[in-house]
Amino acid sequence: MIFLKILNTVLALITAPLLLGIINRTKAFFAGRNGQPLLQPYYDIWKLLNKGSVYSIATSRIFRIGPVVGFSVVLIAAAIVPFGGLPVLLDFQGDLILFAYLFGLSRFFTVLMAMDTASSFEGMGASREVTFSALTEPALLIGLAAIAKYTGYVSLAQIFSSINFDAWLNAAPAFILIGFAFLIVFLSENSRIPVDDPNTHLELTMIHEVMILDHSGPDLAIILYSAAMKMWLLGAILTGIVIPVHSDNVFLNVSAALLFMLLLAVLTGIIESSMARLRLLHVPQLLIGAATLSVLALILILR
């Protein structure tokens, strides 16, 4: 049991950067390029970990402690979120609320790090980050409330273990709505198109990338890795809702979940290849739309 619990966290730690690799390969495929190796994100992180660092003279301690806090937060979150029906290290009633707020803590420090550099570009990114995340938060929490109300449980592990095929048959519309809402949350929180473009290096259009413009070396490696972990964890939440596989065979469950994660990464790649980033003024509409989907799901469940 304890082995499986640790496996749940370790799986996240090992496989998370792979998602970025898959997304990049998918985008390369659509662009007709060969693309970077699948494992490039690992190489990048390793390369950065071995480099020296340049700090801005404007920065303070906050700039140095920020990446550490962000990484610690994803470690704790990785102990909370179950993947593919595996048991988790930390499981208690209301852990889903802690999960949502832990990312708030890491965001708090990311934004402060950006403000610490005294750069107006990073200030811009920080300002957009807090704007959009304030609108994603209701979508995430109301969506979580909807599944909590449906299953009658308030911890992620119990909720996901009670979402099965019957639940899907009974409340398919609600689950589909939540699925779409969380997909938007997933894209927005992980700074993907259509909210943010991780590829452009034009500071004026970016959100997450611009906030970490002044980070270098190991700090940047930690930030990249934490971002990959965050993507994995939010993907795991989506997997828990969409893939109701709960057989006795742990291997089968995990494989099904991994397969879905692969598809999710490919889907993200397809979205990024096939559409442009929304104008910043239109992003709030998308996010409010996600919140509305969550609200509708809650209404369907509690009617």
Binding site: G52, V54, A118
Partner: peptide, 11 residues
């Protein structure tokens, strides 16, 4: 490591 200090990236 080599840790340097420089001005913020200012484009």
């Amino acid at each position: 490591r080599i840790v340097r200090e420089a001005v913020t990236w200012d484009c």
